[in-house]
């Protein structure tokens, strides 16, 4: 029953060697430019994209940004994609965080970066978005939003026109907003379980559609909420970012010369053309590295199980 030496060795690779291999596997693909890997559109991501693309011009969307630098790998791509789509819809948004005092600053950095892509300078504060900063105590904050937006969002912001700080409800963004029902969409970009709190406290899901852009860890859990209709759309981790980017570049069910689209979302009847000037960004750049890392993981699991496989085969021989 003794295994050959090389096989035993493969089952006892030192941890440190594995770690080094993982560093190489994730770092090298980052230096390759212009890789595009095809991806299929999930229902949840498709629903999110379609919802975003059906927003009327000037609609008001909430972005609750609950992530910090530690989950930049996934959440930054999601927020960037969300902002680009909102810009193409000429939507306005309300930004705040209910999870971490640092989150608003991180989100502001992303907005600044995305704004550079637009020739007109992108989203302007006060005109196109209001920044409500951080609200502690996610639970009670969500409750107070559900009961009265005006009290919950009692913040001021500087109006660039006259340099005075005014109530955010005087801004062009929130002028017509009084209740949750006046908002077109409530999105949560998060690395934790904050969508659950919002769903809990808002009660009836019909008050305002809620969409979540979560990290892969939170994905399976939130899939339940999507299935039960408590979320109208969801983007799951890095893969969700890649899907959003693909839909932005390829459009949804969009056909050129009768050729089938690269991005198909079967549950959606219509078609959406590609977004103007859309490009593959951070999501696709990381996607190749994700492949090499995952392939390495699979190979290692197989190597680890070699002993058991050989036992099976030996049994077969005897």
């Amino acid at each position: 029953m003794k295994q050959p030496l090389w096989m035993e060795k493969l089952q006892q690779i030192d941890r440190k060697v594995l770690y080094l291999m993982l560093i190489l596997a994730t770092a090298i693909p980052l230096f390759i430019k212009g890789l595009v890997i095809p991806v299929k559109i999930e229902d949840s991501t498709g629903a999110l994209f379609v919802k975003l693309n059906s927003l009327p011009e000037g609609s008001v969307v909430v972005i609750q940004s609950d992530w910090t630098v530690s989950s930049r790998g996934e959440s930054a791509g999601q927020l960037e994609a969300l902002l680009r789509i909102l810009r193409s819809r000429k939507s306005k948004f309300v930004l705040f965080s209910a999870a971490d005092p640092q989150a608003p600053q991180v989100a502001r950095n992303v907005i600044r970066r995305v704004n550079k892509e637009f020739p007109d300078g992108g989203f302007k504060p006060w005109q196109d978005y209001v920044d409500l900063k951080y609200f502690p105590q996610a639970e009670s904050f969500a409750s107070s939003m559900a009961s009265d937006l005006r009290k919950a969002w009692d913040r001021t912001m500087i109006d660039p026109a006259d340099g005075r700080s005014k109530s955010v409800f005087e801004s062009p963004v929130l002028k017509g907003v009084r209740r949750l029902e006046d908002l077109q969409l409530y999105t949560i970009v998060t690395a934790s379980g904050t969508p659950r709190i919002v769903i809990q406290r808002f009660g009836s899901p019909s008050r305002v559609p809620i969409a979540a852009l979560v990290t892969g860890v939170m994905g399976p859990e939130h899939m339940n909420y999507f299935a039960a209709g408590q979320l109208i759309g969801m983007s799951n981790g890095l893969r969700g970012v890649v899907e959003l980017e693909t839909m932005m570049v390829e459009g949804v069910n969009h056909r050129v010369d009768g050729k089938a689209s690269k991005a198909e979302y079967k549950r959606f009847n219509g078609s959406i053309p590609p977004l103007e000037g859309a490009q593959y960004k951070r999501g696709m750049q990381y996607f190749a590295s994700l492949h090499t890392a995952l392939i390495m993981l699979i190979i290692l699991v197989i190597l680890g199980n070699m002993g058991i496989f050989t036992k099976w085969f030996r049994k077969g021989d005897a």
Binding site: T26, T215, L294
Partner: peptide
Amino acid sequence: STVMTRFALLI
């Protein structure tokens, strides 16, 4: 699904 996140963060 979690593996995806962990690797994405490492990347």
